[in-house]
Design a protein around this nucleic acid. Structure first.
Lengths: 162, 162
DNA sequence: TTGATATAGTCATTGTAGCAACTATATTAG
DNA sequence: CTAATATAGTTGCTACAATGACTATATCAA
């Protein structure tokens, strides 16, 4: 099989299986992976860097779209893990803050969840990890640099069809 | 930052950005990435290997769950790209077959869609690709070998809560 | 100041995606 | 042969996830 194709499929497959396993683990705590991801980012910014944070900030930081973020925050708020407060400086904007319960959970989890998440990489040496990182960064940069454009191939021949 | 954590996040991020871009490309043809993935697998099995194929087969081959596959086939069938036929040997089972239109589209696309998909790997040398593949295979095998189990950390302290 | 433009959050819509439960059928064990 | 078990497909449910449209604000330019 074509080598590049094999690598692309491997990246997709590893990401998918990894996510599935993490989701199953976190489900025992009543969280999903995206929810945990958001909680962790919120913790990092508001507690380690002491900066108030908005849904839009979280969206940029995590790469999750604004509309998806609305839903994730909805569910976290419904489970009383965080609160939405009005931003007094900008009436369009909100500050997201932990509740007592949410803070406890994220502190509880951050010790072990990342360890579980990173565990599958134990199979690799330091050197392999460094190479792997550099290769992935190359791919990521390619994807970002070619942020759409030049994709002449798939121009639809039948635009009005549906 | 921790190196392993960085690599994990890179894998997730690269997979996510890559999928997003592919989805936007395929949208011009009225398809989604999972839909194209299923069509391609169907083509490979029924046309290159001349084997009839069921939804359950497609599910195993693609790693998409059976219930999700139901929905994907629903939508492809609604768009008249394939048909469900009864399997005469097993009345529980179906054979999935292309329509004329579906066959045309998958043949049309297979030339270029994979090329677009693999393009971001052009930044890497043959040697880098080989290393990358081997590293990813190690990770995948770790994930598969540890198919749940030994994840003592996250045992819920409050199992009745929801 | 006012008009154009940009940003923040939400909502509707469509399409995954997995789990659990269910029906129908097949297979296997006793 | 019958009862237990397994498999195929579907459905209901919850939760992402992106796009596009919309409202409310903020900002910037003329």
């Amino acid at each position: 099989m074509d080598l590049r194709q094999e690598v692309v499929e491997l990246i997709f497959r590893v990401a998918k299986i990894g996510k599935l396993k993490l989701n199953r683990q976190l489900a025992q705590k009543g969280l999903t992976l995206p929810q945990y991801f958001v909680m962790k980012m919120l913790y990092k910014k508001t507690y380690e860097e002491k900066k108030p944070i908005s849904p839009a900030d979280l969206s940029t930081l995590t790469g999750i779209s604004r509309s998806t973020m609305t839903g994730i925050i909805d569910r976290l708020e419904k489970n009383c893990l965080l609160d939405r407060k009005q931003n007094p400086q900008d009436r369009r904007s909100q500050n997201i803050e932990f509740t007592e319960k949410g803070l406890n959970i994220v502190q509880d989890l951050s010790m072990v969840a990342d360890e579980i998440r990173n565990e599958p990489l134990k199979a690799l040496s330091e050197e392999q990890l460094l190479n792997l990182r550099d290769d992935l960064i190359l791919i990521e940069n390619y994807l970002k640099d070619h942020e759409d454009g030049d994709l002449v191939y798939l121009k639809s021949e039948e635009p009005g069809e549906h």
